[in-house]
């Protein structure tokens, strides 16, 4: 698998090089970014294969991913209002950046099997993955962060995630790519972004302490039961 992916990556990178030689660089940004996103996703799962994580971590990450994914299906009362972003954030916060990335991307991939895969899938995987990573870094730096601060970060995640999600569409299908056109494309989705951000904030304010306590307890159980 490793060899194969090296071959394939080299192949596609050379194609990209060829293309950029001939055309305007700006035209190939979308293709380039798409392939980078795909490569990051594939590499992170390949790294998972090589990591020391065992059956316990697989089970915990899978469980958290399913939990986060189900959130998307159950809160249907307004677009953008779902606990998924928040659940991914606390998973990363408690278990670490890499685990957070896996929870976020797995949740997106599996829930899309039920809700519909599309060109947005890799971006969603990436977007929630990033939310997990950032939260993981925060968790490492400041484990005793206050609810309010974390909620503000969750508020920002609303924009971060939505803006990453907008990318696949804007980069690929908006021409010319100028600051003005990008801003107005983003402005179109602003209401949803704000809704998402506010709901994230509320989820965090309401659930943070309670759910983090549960997660920490399980993390402890994971750790003490370890024999290496």
């Amino acid at each position: 698998m490793r060899k194969l992916s090296i071959y394939l990556t080299t192949f596609f990178i050379s194609i990209l090089l060829f293309l950029t030689i001939t055309g305007k660089i700006q035209e190939y940004i979308p293709l380039f970014v798409t392939i980078v996103v795909l490569a990051i996703l594939i590499l992170s799962y390949m790294y998972f294969e090589k990591s020391a994580m065992g059956t316990k971590e697989i089970a915990v990450i899978a469980t958290l991913s399913a939990f986060a994914g189900v959130g998307r299906a159950i809160f249907a009362f307004a677009p953008g209002v779902q606990p998924t972003t928040f659940i991914v954030a606390i998973s990363g916060f408690v278990f670490g950046p890499y685990e957070g990335f896996l929870v976020g991307s797995t949740a997106a991939f599996i829930s899309n099997i039920f809700l519909g895969q599309g060109p947005w899938s890799p971006w969603q995987m990436f977007g929630w993955g990033i939310v997990g990573v950032i939260s993981g870094i925060i968790g490492k730096a400041r484990a005793n962060i206050s609810v309010e601060k974390f909620s503000v970060i969750c508020f920002l995640y609303g924009f971060l995630f939505d803006w990453i999600m907008n990318l696949w569409h804007v980069l690929g299908y908006i021409r010319p790519l100028t600051l003005k056109s990008i801003i107005s494309a983003y402005a179109l989705g602003l209401t949803f972004d704000v809704l998402h951000a506010i709901s994230n904030f509320l989820f965090s304010m309401i659930f943070f302490e309670r759910l983090v306590r549960v997660l920490r307890r399980f993390k402890r159980r994971l750790e003490i039961t370890y024999i290496r």
Binding site: I58, A62, A66, T106, A107, I110, S111, I113
Partner: peptide, 13 residues
């Protein structure tokens, strides 16, 4: 490992 993780998530969903 990734496949098992995906499968378990898929079953739990």
């Amino acid at each position: 490992k990734s496949t098992l993780m995906m499968m378990v998530t898929f079953k739990l969903f």
